[in-house]
Design a protein around this nucleic acid. Structure first.
Lengths: 342, 342
DNA sequence: TTGTATGCGTTATCAA
DNA sequence: TTGATAACGCATACAA
């Protein structure tokens, strides 16, 4: 046994090497498994490492190997369930492979977008997952990354990006419209989407088109905000005007819950007289699925983004691979049971 | 002008040095500002760096200086507004100083806690901000960190941790109880807190004690979940039993909104007959502050945590500094206007 | 104010 | 299968 004063400094590869009586190269190979090592030396190295409390130094490793085993994540600084779910699923996929996530938030208008991305690049991340706050930022991210694997996620996607994950609005709207047609809807009223916001306007149009294609008339668009209180307010205005055959299509579960609660309290029978659907599920775990709503594929989007990143890292040429994932329709108690097709 | 083929490789300090006709040391000092440099050389160095598209290599810098300019953040993997707000405020404070955030999620039961922390340590983060999922994890984090600056945030705090940020339950409950006493509350009913969950039980007791100290009777504890639907369900059971002078104290805004909506729909006058308060504000931006609720100081907690970390990094000795921040009482339309003290 | 020289801890190359 | 050794790119002690 050599001098093994439990020093304050962390043990290095060299320390382990001399403790085990082998070279640093062998220790590196034994511990990382990058190359075969004889069972005997492997055992000795492991024992020595344990004895000295050796810990791998990821910084030195990154410098030498030119891989940091980390990816940068850039998100707009507005707290939504969407982003929380995305972060969680992305980090979960990355964790499984020992990849770290370096998180950077950007102002909603994209003001500091470029410096945040640049900082991530300076830290030599192996890849980038970006949810751009604007279409301009999206283009910048693409150009700044300069060959580094990058995947864009969300609604603002640079057309030149080879790898992108987004929501398939058309398909999602079609899923809902199909269900509404089969449950006897003849007209929809949209509640909680702002016709003056570009993103909302797109969604209003997707839903309207999908309904129209199935013989459902797109009716009024009511916007008094998009939270629970807005749903309550809107429903107080609407409840005595709605007629059988109408479905209230709400921006999200909060709005839909407000609408549902008021209508039922006012004696309107849901779903018998009027149906209610939500375009954005917020509480997947709610007991008894009271609402029919579209469950956005956030977790899949995160997993898909990570997979794309790996793919881009492997293949030298950046094959174009853009995925639009559809939402799931979760049928709850706020719509009727579908009739058989006639 | 020397050979300046725009190579695919990134320029290094040495490249800039030869381009500017100075030594690498001078370039390092000029670009980092770590030591004074003559105005003339500064200009030349900057020009050369720009010409070559030089980018700082944070990895090499970290290896040499033994500082990664990054901190690890460990959070339980349950998506709540609390954690979103915490992440945002922490990263905002860190960004301001060019510090990166390395994010790691841990299972709610803390199963993979220790490996996640160890990974962060292997990456040589300069500090750790931990929101432990359990009290055991809290202790482990403390011991694993082994001298590295660490700040713990949340409800599960290791008693030995020198630096910790938490919510002052007593003070927060007192704030609410004071308001309720001045608005004529004689008895409270707690809705949405689970008496069998330790964390909820603590809160029930804090509120109960604070009320008792002001002559308000702690009444029934009703638990049917803690989301909006639970509020609706609870209220349907309660609405014809509540009597004037009672206040329904709800676990959070979701529960309170459900209760409020049902009571009003049933003709119970709020706040005239019955008052409603929430112990946890979820939607700070709701229009018209319909609810009286406690706004938890999440952003301040994040900022405080970062400040503590810096403090711990500066001072060699780890001075014990534990902060409990009180919530704010946001008075909304679900309680009455306070009477003058008699 | 500037230059010289060394080392941070690891992995990759090459030869044995 | 193993060992010796050279980088990786930067920051710093020391000398000038």
């Amino acid at each position: 046994m050599t001098d093994s004063a439990p020093s304050d400094e962390l043990a290095t590869l060299a320390d382990v090497a001399s403790e085990a009586g082998v070279s640093t190269a062998t220790v590196s190979r034994a511990l990382s498994g990058s190359r075969p090592v004889s069972p005997d030396t492997l055992k000795r190295v492991r024992a020595a490492a344990a004895r000295l409390g050796y810990r791998h130094n990821a910084v030195a490793s990154a410098l030498r190997s030119n891989r940091t085993q980390s990816v940068g994540i850039v998100l707009p600084r507005y707290a939504t369930v969407f982003l929380s779910a995305l972060i969680e699923s992305v980090t979960e996929s990355l964790d499984a492979q020992g990849i770290g996530a370096l998180l950077r938030y950007v102002a909603p208008d994209g003001a500091d977008h470029d410096e945040r991305v640049a900082d991530l690049l300076d830290r030599r991340v192996d890849g980038l997952i970006v949810c751009p706050p604007t279409i301009e930022a999206s283009g910048h991210a693409q150009r700044l990354s300069h060959g580094l694997p990058i995947v864009q996620v969300g609604r603002f996607l640079d057309p030149d990006t080879p790898s992108a994950v987004s929501l398939d609005e058309t398909s999602s709207a079609g899923l809902l419209a199909h269900h509404l047609a089969r449950t006897g809807t003849r007209k929809i009223i949209t509640v909680g989407l702002d016709p003056d916001a570009p993103a909302d306007a797109t969604r209003i149009r997707s839903v309207g088109d999908a309904c129209a294609a199935r013989g459902i008339a797109p009716g009024a668009v009511v916007y008094r905000g998009s939270d629970l209180l807005a749903g309550v307010t809107a429903a107080e205005k609407l409840w005595d005007a709605v007629t059988p055959g109408e479905t209230l299509v709400c921006a999200n579960d909060d709005v839909a819950t407000g609408v549902l609660t008021v209508l039922r309290a006012r004696g309107v029978r849901v779903p018998d007289d009027v149906q209610i659907a939500s375009l954005l599920q917020l509480y997947p775990d709610a007991q008894g699925t009271p609402l029919t709503s579209l469950r956005h594929p956030w977790r899949q989007m995160g997993a898909e983004a990570v997979e794309m990143l790996e793919h881009a890292q492997r293949s030298r040429v950046a094959a174009r691979r853009r995925t639009a994932l559809s939402a799931d329709l979760v049928v709850g108690a706020s719509t009727r049971t579908p009739q058989e097709e006639s």
